[in-house]
Computed example of a mutant assay.
Amino acid sequence: MANPQSTGTGDTGAAAENWWVFRGPAELPEPPPWRRFPASRRPLEAQRYLMSADEIAVVNAALHLRRPLLVTGRPGTGKSSLAQAVAKDLDLGDVLRWSVNSRSTLADALYRYDAVGRLREASLQRAHEPLRSPTRRLGKRTRQNPGIGNYLRLGPLGTALAADRPRVLLIDELDKSDIDLPNDLLVVLEEGEFEIPELARLPEHQQTAEVLVSGSRERIQVKRGLLSCSHFPIIVMTSNGEREFPPAFLRRCVRLDLRDPDEAKLRDIIRLNLGEDALAQADDLIGTFLDRAATQSLATDQLLAAVHLLVTGADLNHDELLSAVMHRLDEAFPA
């Protein structure tokens, strides 16, 4: 295959020829450790999470108090990864995730009811039901309408509350929510229960249903439309600090502010994820990252990405390539 210089892509400098994958001779390379899926295939070192003693103490306070942990910090400081670290360290299974945006509602996180699907299924069953004699039509129907449980699925928050053991729930980027959502969460976070009105309105003998949970085909039994938790979940809520939350909401949280890592911590992160050999080559990149981070919004994983490219053979002396990876996060893409 032709090299990049002969394909009209412009001067590429002295990058090692075997680094090229797109329009180059190389085969698709192995991804970085943190981009290997599923997570069970990742090296154990890549799953560890670096925290100071003070930060660990705050997380433990939230666990002892069974209060939600509200984690604030700039993008890339590891807020979302903290939930994964807690779940792994305490062996609590997969993290349940609720990614919040301006259209998110509390009902979305608790459960979903597919009323249209249930009506369509019932209509199809009636349409395909064999013709029967008038005598048989007066008797018991040979086919039952679909059970309501088939059309109810708990959301991530509902699943976390319904679990028979503690689960970790990540409520990501809560500051992007509608202004009323934090207040809507108050009762659920305080009481640990909620009602499914579609079940509660049914006759007494129909109010027990087997409903699906988030992320699997498993079911749990809900009686009389009320779901109460037996183990309060470990809730990690993240915020980029773009808004303030109501005092009543903050009172129910334990707060943790993740600061930008200093040079020593950046070196530890590189060593942990990419190894000593990568760290030995990263001095210039660390310096560049710290210089840029002093005036721009950057994320730690951008530095990791740059170091990974460097050790795989990329020529990062060209500012355009380095800036494509280590670009500022606090401005729009240039026109």
Rank of each mutant, 00 (worst) to 15 (best):
N317I: 00
I234L: 14
V213K: 03
E263M: 07
D178G: 10
E320D: 15
R243G: 02
K223N: 05
S133C: 00
H128P: 00
D257C: 12
Q144N: 11
D330Q: 09
L157R: 06
L131K: 00
P29Y: 05
K265G: 01
A306H: 07
R36A: 11
A299I: 12
S214N: 14
E210P: 00
A46H: 01
D11N: 13
L279E: 07
E198R: 10
R66G: 08
R48L: 15
P130F: 00
H318P: 06
A122S: 13
A26F: 02
G287Y: 10
N145Y: 11
R118K: 09
P233V: 09
E204R: 12
V86S: 02
E198H: 10
S133Y: 00
L274K: 03
Q221W: 05
M326F: 07
I269H: 00
S228P: 00
G287E: 11
S52E: 14
A57M: 11
R251A: 15
A115K: 02
L92P: 00
R48T: 10
A26V: 00
R328V: 14
R141D: 06
Q5W: 02
Q5C: 08
A280L: 01
I179S: 14
P197L: 08
W34N: 04
R137F: 00
V116R: 12
Q281D: 08
M237C: 11
R267Y: 01
R23G: 10
P197R: 05
L181M: 12
P29N: 09
A306K: 04
L309A: 10
W34P: 04
L329V: 08
N3C: 09
T312Q: 15
R267Q: 08
S228R: 05
F194L: 04
P32D: 01
F37K: 13
G13W: 01
L199A: 01
G24V: 11
R48E: 11
I196F: 05
K265W: 02
Q221P: 00
A83D: 06
R267F: 03
G139H: 03
T159H: 04
L181W: 04
R271T: 04
E331A: 15
A324Y: 08
L272N: 00
G78W: 05
N273G: 07
M51P: 01
N60E: 15
A335S: 12
T12Q: 15
P233Y: 03
M51A: 15
E320M: 12
I286F: 05
L28N: 02
L303E: 06
I286E: 01
V21Q: 10
A85E: 01
L186R: 06
E244A: 09
A14P: 03
R118D: 01
P33H: 10
V236D: 08
F333P: 14
L274D: 05
D54Q: 15
W20A: 08
H327R: 15
R66D: 12
H231K: 02
Q5E: 14
L321E: 03
R67Y: 10
I171S: 02
C229S: 10
P247H: 04
E27V: 07
L70N: 02
A280E: 13
T12I: 12
